[in-house]
């Protein structure tokens, strides 16, 4: 199903982490690259993230976590997506994700793991080339 619409992305900050500089810069960078971007703001519970996905039907969800709570929160979010049979959305997490945690997160179905020093173009290209739904780009 090829579509001639904008790629729709949710940028979300799960957990209590308030460090939102990176999330905001990425949200704006993706918007400037022609995507439709919804920024949920901070303090999103796994249920909040799920509800945003159900409501907005995005092509990608980018989670930003710098507090170290990524393993607990991401696996909870993925569990909720599986429960709701949502399997065509790219879910990625970035922020401060130690190398040792990447395997565990990959097994949960997450991608990305971009950290400090990543430029905007890298994120834009990453989203475009990892979407699960087919787009004519």
């Amino acid at each position: 199903m090829s579509k001639e619409r904008k790629i729709k992305v949710i940028v979300a900050k799960p957990g209590l982490d308030g460090h939102d500089r990176g999330a905001k810069v990425i949200a704006r960078g993706l918007r400037d690259a022609g995507m439709e971007v919804i920024y949920t703001g901070i303090h999103q519970t796994p249920d909040d993230v799920l509800n945003s996905i159900i409501q907005e039907d995005p092509d990608a969800v980018l989670l930003s976590i710098l507090s170290g709570a990524h393993n607990a929160l991401c696996s909870k979010i993925m569990e909720k997506l599986r429960e709701n049979n949502i399997d065509d959305v790219l879910v990625a997490v970035g922020g401060i994700i130690p190398d040792e945690d990447k395997k565990f997160l990959e097994e949960q179905g997450l991608k990305g793991f971009h950290g400090p020093g990543t430029n905007i173009k890298t994120i834009v290209d990453f989203v475009k080339s990892n979407l699960k739904r087919k787009f004519r780009i």
Partner: peptide
């Protein structure tokens, strides 16, 4: 809400 954040 403290899930994953304890002592982090």
């Amino acid at each position: 809400k403290s899930l994953g954040e304890i002592g982090k």
